[in-house]
Amino acid sequence: MNNAAASVMEREWRRYEPGERIARFVVYAAIVAAVVMSIRTVEVIPEFILDAPEQVVDLLKRMWPPDVASYPKEIHAALLDSLHIATVGTVLGVAMALPFGFLAARNVTPWPWLNWMARLILISARSVNTLVFALFFVAVFGPGALAGTLAIAFHSIGFVGRLFSEALENTSPGPIEALRAAGAPSASVITYGYWPQVVPAFWSLVLFRWDINVRESIVLGLVGAGGVGMALDNALNLFQWNRVAMVLLAILGVVIAAEVAVTYIRKKII
């Protein structure tokens, strides 16, 4: 760089290029505008905000001490039900998600219209919340664990299918090409070429989803779809705060145990 150019630049140093600066400014401005508009129009009574800390403390006081005696009677079985719902729901969800995952992956399925169909189904499954599926299945099969399990399974399709298809698309094409060149049928290309490459990603996303589903299975009871959420709902409706506290403690224990288990298994198999 010659000196003239350097001297022009001397006082001109800026952190970003002009276009980049404008784009960032627009984003920041939009965020500020959205926040300001939300604060101004959201229907919140200011006194309630000031009152909130006191109310929360009051609630916590009413919860103490947790009603330990209620655990074996009313909570334990419901908690196990929630775990069953999460596990069976995950297995069913994964089983249904795999075909869509293969169909959505552009390198596995060479027909764009099939890719898009599969993607549409995956996006729809992901966009409909587990609770909405639960409302639907409670209406269809009546209240109980079956509705909850199916809700978990259907919502999981979207998550598992999308991540699985992404894992498939990230596989290296070399081994696939070699198998095709050797004249292997498509099914064998999948089992010998794609599958070994995506196994670690597959297990890790199944475990991840199971961990999420444990948390989700706990809420399902609120809409009558089985599990510990129903015990929570009962205690809440009867204002038995000590029992509510016990349910919450039990949930905390299960969720943390699930997270620890997932971390342990992931280390073991990956």
């Binding site: 350097a6 630049m9 001397e10 006082r11 140093w13 800026r14 952190r15």
Partner: peptide, 13 residues
């Protein structure tokens, strides 16, 4: 804010 004195910026260049 990356608001350095211009003397510093000249020196840096």
């Amino acid at each position: 804010m990356r608001n350095f004195p211009s003397a510093d910026i000249s020196e840096a260049f």
